[in-house]
Design a protein around this nucleic acid. Structure first.
Lengths: 186, 186
DNA sequence: GCGACACGATAACAATTGTTAAGAAATTCT
DNA sequence: AGAATTTCTTAACAATTGTTATCGTGTCGC
């Protein structure tokens, strides 16, 4: 639970702080299983999460989230449909949790919340578009270098096999690319 | 120019029919050059168009349009920013053309037009999401078979090298895949 | 009809990436 | 600290895809 002055979600919770729970989890904890209906939205105080889906037995990671980001299967959360992906912690993490019911209360009473959700959705769409263009325009090595340039924190904090999955290649191939990039630099 | 009873854009033009021009073009005609600002929106009465962009000298086709579809670089058309892609005819085509100025007139006066534009944008976004997931989940052969199953008309009407570009492979590779699929069937 | 051009198949070779396996290095847990 | 687990690298080989080039067919415009 949070005190009334909390502004941890990027907004002032005011009288709604008591509707938000704090949750601490170890690494590799699944917050939402693919196929289940999302009942909570999360905000990362400390740690790191990933979104992934099962593709014929293969783990495909397609987005990472770090501190001060809101994370949810927004489509499932809002529509009650089964989620198309899982949400899992990469590091031990401290999260804020809001249930659907409490979220509805907040949306009804807190000005500016609707806009925050809109922005959240647009952000997700923009991410999809970028991923698609990156796959079309760049080969795996170029995608890796782009990630390194645009999001060095991801490469530093996230285990390599998740990165490989994100880039659409195997961990072995990523290791080779990293080695090649190193050699080329010398 | 159209008579007042035209409903060629999926709506009744009513008094606005005179704002729409008809245009007939041969194959391989560029309607909008990548980098230019889009001044017109098009509707296909007969024929077939493609959207493509230049990626380091390579022609990347990412969407096809046929009869009864509206086509535009909607972002450029609405914002006045340079278009990120070109629009080009594949077959000789007959189009309806609306200028930005006339479009604004229509939007101001015709109820339901705003919604039509919204739907147009959502359609484009949905297409992007599908393309991205297809690249992640399927290899080139699977993507080809999926296209064959979902959109056989595209495979039938569009020259193979555009399809190859759309699938993210070379024409040579597509030819091999087609041959392999044929052999496997026997 | 004829020449120019576009289109598609195929071959040979190169380059990239996947697969499998083994072992080293780092991290986590007790 | 020591064991167990995870993570990363490397190697050898297979499979896929790209590159380049050639050839045959068809189609379009004049």
């Amino acid at each position: 639970m949070l005190n009334d002055n909390s502004s941890d979600f990027g907004i002032n919770w005011g009288q709604y702080g008591h509707l938000v729970e704090e949750l601490t989890i170890p690494a590799k904890t699944t917050l939402l299983h693919e196929g289940d209906v999302s009942k909570n939205a999360y905000f990362i105080k400390k740690g790191c999460l990933r979104l992934w889906f099962n593709n014929n037995g293969k783990d495909v990671t397609f987005q990472f989230f770090f501190e001060n980001y809101g994370v949810s299967s927004i489509e499932s959360f809002q529509s009650g449909q089964p989620s198309l992906f899982s949400i899992e912690s990469i590091e031990p993490s401290t999260l804020l949790v809001i249930s659907k019911a409490n979220m509805d209360l907040i949306i009804a009473g807190l000005p500016g919340y609707q806009e925050l959700m809109q922005a959240h959705i647009l952000q997700r769409m923009h991410h999809y578009a970028k991923l698609f263009l990156s796959r079309i325009k760049n080969n795996p090595q170029e995608r890796y270098l782009e990630l390194l340039a645009d999001s060095p924190h991801i490469v530093q904090r996230v285990p390599q096999h998740y990165i490989a999955s994100y880039l659409g290649i195997t961990p072995v191939s990523l290791s080779r690319i990293r080695n090649k990039v190193l050699v080329d630099k010398k």
